[in-house]
Simulated assay, not measured.
Amino acid sequence: MKNDDENDDFLFSQEMAGVHKLSDNNQVVYLKNHQKAARPQTPDVTEPENILTTGFLDVIDCAEPLEYKQAGVQQGVLDKLRQGKYPLEASLNLLRKPVETCRQELFSFFLQAQAQNLRTLLIVHGRGRHDESHANIVRSYLAKWLRQLDEVQAFSVATGKDGGAGACYVALKKSPQAKQENWERHAKHSR
């Protein structure tokens, strides 16, 4: 019996000889093939300074759901977002990462989403069971940071299938280019 186990171990190690561990840096996932994403990205040498702050934090109670909408945004937009009715275009995973790393990755993710005219995002932040747990601190910072980004129209806790209380949906404003395309498309129909 021992000989078979040794043989199996030897065969397994031969098969796995060229396999390497995947990088843990895969925090951004694009959920659909977006037309704008297909264009080659030119590196922007003058990336704007990260405006997200880490100063004073008002910790949000674990039982309080994350939810926000800018003034002027219709309640129906927030309702559809909360119900997960908008198609997700990209996702960011912030699980078990230090606050400063989360801050940097969120700002970079936001800039990429803007550059690619993405509208609906999913951010996985984790779910803390205690108000002072790390996951709840990241969650509370996320609520603060998303309010600091002018292009964020609304955000809401995700549905169970997308992470529930450990994730949130984010709706971004249309870019000026997308607004123009939408206007032109609807103007043609009204003629």
Rank of each mutant, 00 (worst) to 15 (best):
residue 125 H to M: 15
residue 80 K to V: 08
residue 54 T to Q: 07
residue 7 N to L: 14
residue 64 E to I: 11
residue 157 V to T: 13
residue 3 N to T: 12
residue 98 P to I: 02
residue 71 A to P: 01
residue 27 Q to M: 11
residue 184 E to Y: 01
residue 33 N to M: 03
residue 82 R to A: 13
residue 61 D to H: 07
residue 121 L to M: 13
residue 102 C to K: 05
residue 53 T to W: 00
residue 50 N to K: 00
residue 175 S to R: 02
residue 10 F to I: 12
residue 149 L to A: 02
residue 60 I to L: 05
residue 184 E to K: 09
residue 11 L to C: 07
residue 47 E to K: 03
residue 53 T to A: 08
residue 167 A to C: 08
residue 56 F to L: 10
residue 39 R to Q: 13
residue 69 K to L: 01
residue 115 A to T: 06
residue 174 K to V: 07
residue 115 A to E: 08
residue 23 S to Q: 04
residue 113 A to V: 08
residue 186 H to V: 05
residue 18 G to N: 15
residue 55 G to K: 07
residue 94 L to M: 10
residue 191 R to A: 12
residue 51 I to V: 12
residue 186 H to A: 04
residue 65 P to W: 02
residue 164 G to D: 02
residue 190 S to G: 10
residue 90 A to G: 11
residue 159 T to G: 06
residue 59 V to P: 08
residue 28 V to D: 07
residue 42 T to Q: 10
residue 84 G to I: 08
residue 115 A to W: 09
residue 31 L to Y: 01
residue 143 A to P: 01
residue 119 R to F: 04
residue 151 E to G: 10
residue 147 R to A: 01
residue 24 D to E: 13
residue 80 K to I: 01
residue 145 W to E: 01
residue 55 G to R: 00
residue 111 L to E: 14
residue 116 Q to G: 09
residue 33 N to G: 05
residue 23 S to D: 04
residue 143 A to R: 05
residue 53 T to K: 11
residue 94 L to W: 05
residue 90 A to Q: 07
residue 95 L to N: 09
residue 57 L to T: 01
residue 167 A to L: 04
residue 106 L to A: 11
residue 142 L to A: 00
residue 75 Q to A: 15
residue 22 L to I: 09
residue 86 Y to T: 05
residue 142 L to H: 03
residue 175 S to H: 06
residue 106 L to E: 10
residue 83 Q to T: 00
residue 76 G to V: 13
residue 51 I to R: 08
residue 60 I to W: 02
residue 37 A to C: 08
residue 121 L to A: 07
residue 169 Y to N: 06
residue 59 V to R: 09
residue 118 L to C: 12
residue 86 Y to W: 03
residue 16 M to Y: 10
residue 59 V to W: 02
residue 174 K to P: 00
residue 17 A to F: 15
residue 53 T to I: 07
residue 12 F to W: 13
residue 28 V to L: 08
residue 133 S to F: 05
residue 113 A to G: 09
residue 186 H to W: 06
residue 164 G to Y: 02
residue 85 K to N: 00
residue 73 V to L: 03
residue 88 L to C: 07
residue 166 G to K: 00
residue 174 K to I: 10
residue 9 D to F: 12
residue 127 R to F: 11
residue 183 W to K: 10
residue 122 L to I: 10
residue 108 S to R: 11
residue 136 N to C: 01
